[in-house]
Design a protein around this nucleic acid. Structure first.
Lengths: 162, 162
DNA sequence: GTGTATCGTGGAAGAAGTAAACGATTGGAG
DNA sequence: CTCCAATCGTTTACTTCTTCCACGATACAC
């Protein structure tokens, strides 16, 4: 097996009660765990984590500019360039100059990009299910609602009022 | 919302519905957010993230060996060395050779270390409260219980026979 | 026009994470 | 007991990942 990193330690030592009793700690631990695991699987499928983020973001249909993509995904703008280069080279996205503001590039998914996104969504969904497996339907709904409330109260980017 | 292109602002800083609808995504987002925020505050207080981890782990009273600390915290053993150096230099921890196995170092908190830990706990608690603020007591308990179940099913380190 | 700010891009400096090698020490096989 | 392999903490070197700044092109205010 290709050993990436610490999935499960050889010696199963225990975490201190203090940390286990902290909801914030658990939240961070589980959240980071999901992210790491997801990125690992995405990479096995031939993409970087941020690349999946870009595809998922563009999957909504909206054509974004590079700056807005970087903002939403929390990436540095210069960092995004190489990720987009890779995606464009594979024919999954298209960069076009924005006719309204010729400094900007509008980025959009191609048909091939949409197909890849479907594939990646399946992978991510599988991981999500494996994490939520111990929860019944009611608990999942409750968890989702709770997380959404926390996210909204701390980041305006989540609030989308119509 | 209608569907002409100019409806979509150049800077749409909203996350796609696809991601917002994913519990795993929210979990990762919120979890990473808490971790980043906590580490940032901890650093303002003069410690690195892993350093707080070490203090919290030792706060339980148990004296651990360096290898076990690294395992539990998910750090590389070589990485832990410099963190412990810093803590020891400030007189917050003590390294002693284990008389039973002279290759090992046992690490324990000093009195000063315990005092610092109290201070750091307050900081972390404040952040936790700010994140959980939109939740009532019942929702917090429910969230904690749910997270614990997810954590247990994915990491042996959480299971503590009760 | 002129100056200032933003866009995407590239490169340089810095930090962080990863891997390999070392001396000291232990435990086991013969 | 001796020898050998393995473990522990540590140092060093290497490789990635971030962060920061400068650049040409473009937009906008005055």
């Amino acid at each position: 097996m290709t050993s990436t990193k610490s999935e499960i330690p050889a010696k199963s030592h225990f975490l201190p009660e203090e940390l286990l009793a902290s909801t914030a700690f658990l939240l961070a631990r589980v959240g980071v765990g999901i992210k790491l695991r997801t990125f690992a699987e995405i990479e096995k499928a031939g993409f970087s984590g941020p690349q999946y983020g870009v595809l998922a973001l563009l999957g909504e249909g909206a054509t974004e500019t590079q700056a807005s993509i970087a903002d939403v995904l929390g990436l540095d703008r210069s960092q995004l360039v190489s990720e987009l280069d890779a995606l464009e080279e594979r024919g999954l996205i298209e960069r076009r100059r924005d006719p309204n503001d010729r400094r900007r590039h509008t980025v959009a998914l191609t048909a091939a990009g949409k197909r890849q996104l479907v594939r990646l969504r399946a992978i991510v969904k599988r991981i999500e299910d494996s994490f939520l497996e111990p929860l019944d339907e009611a608990a999942r709904t409750q968890l989702h609602d709770t997380l959404l409330r926390i996210a909204c109260s701390h980041d305006r980017r989540y609030k989308r009022e119509s």
